[in-house]
C-alpha cells in the first residue's frame, strides 16, 4: 500500500494526521460552507454587515421565500423533465451500440467506436449553430423534448464508450455457448448480456443524471423562457434578479445542488465505478 499506512508510523505522525484531516476538509469545503451558512442567514444580518459571525437565528424562511417568490420550483421540475428521459434514452441506445461494438467483429468496428469516442470530446460550440437550427426545424426549440433529444444523442457517445468496454470484459464463452445452442442474437442480447449489464446501467444512470442536471450551456442555447428552462439556466437568471440578495442566491444554489448530491450519496459505489472506468487496467 502506498503511502505507508498511518498506523505503522510514529504516534506523533498519527496524531498530526488525525488533526490535519478535518482541518484540510474544512479548508477544502470553505466556499461551500460559506454559502451553506449564508443560505440560513436572515436578510437583516446581511443588511447590518454580519457576513461571517453567527447568524442571529437560523432563517429557514430564505428557502421558503425562494420557493414562494421565485420560479425555482418550476425550474427544478423542468430539469427533471429533461434529465429523466435523457438518462433512459442514452442508456437504452448505448446498451445496444455497446453490445454491437463489444461482441461482434466486423471490419469497421473500431472506426465506428472511435467516431463515438471522438465525437464525445468535441467542443459544444462547433455543434451549437446547426443543432439550434435543427431543433428549430423540428419545432422543438424552447421545449424539454428538443433539449432531451440533443442530450440523448450526445451522451450516447460517452455511454457507448462505457458500455462497449464493459461488455468486452464479460466472459465471451457465454455467448459462444449460446450460439452453439442455436440461440438467436437478439435473445442473446436480451437474456444473456442485458442481465449482466445491470451494474453498468446503474453506474451510467447516476452519471448521466448528474451531467444533464448540471448542464448549463445547452440549457441556455435551446431554452429561453421560465416555462422550459432547467435549474442551471434558471438559477443564472435568478442571480440577475436577486442582485446582492446573497441569502437567496445561496439558498437557491443549495437547492439546485441537492438532487445530484443526493444521487451521489445514495449511489456512491456506482457513481465512482462509472467515473473511474479505465483508470485501472
Amino acid at each position: 500500500m502506498f503511502p505507508r499506512p498511518i498506523d505503522q508510523t510514529s504516534p506523533l505522525t498519527q496524531r498530526l494526521y488525525t488533526i490535519a484531516l478535518p482541518i484540510a476538509l474544512i479548508l477544502w469545503l470553505l466556499p461551500l460552507l460559506g454559502v451553506a451558512v449564508t443560505s440560513v442567514r436572515p436578510a437583516s444580518d446581511l443588511a447590518q454587515g454580519n457576513y461571517f459571525g453567527m447568524p442571529s437565528y437560523i432563517a429557514f424562511e430564505n428557502y421558503i421565500s425562494v420557493f414562494r417568490d421565485s420560479d425555482l420550483g418550476r425550474y427544478m421540475v423542468n430539469s427533471l423533465k429533461v434529465t429523466i428521459p435523457t438518462v433512459i434514452g442514452a442508456v437504452v441506445l448505448s446498451c445496444m451500440t455497446g453490445f454491437a461494438l463489444g461482441i461482434y467483429k466486423f471490419r469497421s468496428n473500431l472506426l465506428v467506436f472511435f467516431l463515438f469516442v471522438a465525437g464525445n470530446f468535441v467542443p459544444f460550440q462547433i455543434l451549437m449553430v446547426p443543432v439550434r437550427d435543427l431543433t428549430l426545424d423540428l419545432g422543438m426549440y424552447n421545449s424539454w423534448t428538443g433539449l432531451a433529444m440533443f442530450h440523448i444523442a450526445f451522451q450516447t457517445g460517452f455511454c457507448t464508450l462505457f458500455m462497449r468496454n464493459f461488455i468486452k470484459a464479460l466472459p465471451f464463452e457465454l455467448i459462444e455457448a449460446a450460439r452453439v445452442e442455436g440461440v438467436s442474437e437478439i435473445r442473446i442480447f436480451w437474456y444473456i448480456v442485458l442481465p449482466l449489464m445491470k451494474p453498468a446501467i446503474a453506474a451510467l444512470s447516476v452519471l448521466i443524471f448528474t451531467f444533464i442536471w448540471n448542464d448549463f450551456f445547452w440549457a441556455t442555447v435551446l431554452t429561453t423562457t421560465k416555462e422550459t428552462q432547467p435549474i442551471t439556466a434558471g438559477l443564472s437568471s435568478l442571480n440577475g434578479q436577486w442582485v446582492a440578495a446573497w441569502h437567496l442566491v445561496s439558498a437557491g444554489s443549495i437547492l439546485a445542488a441537492l438532487p445530484p448530491v443526493l444521487m451521489f450519496f445514495l449511489m456512491q459505489k456506482h457513481f465512482i465505478a462509472g467515473l473511474t472506468l479505465g483508470a485501472v487496467k
Partner: peptide, 24 residues
Amino acid sequence: APWLFLAPGAAMFLVYVIIPIFQS
C-alpha cells in the same frame, strides 16, 4: 445483427454530433 443494434444510436449521434461538425 451488429448493424441492427447500432442503427438507432448511430443515427442519433450522426444527426446531432457528426453532421453538425461539417455544417459548422
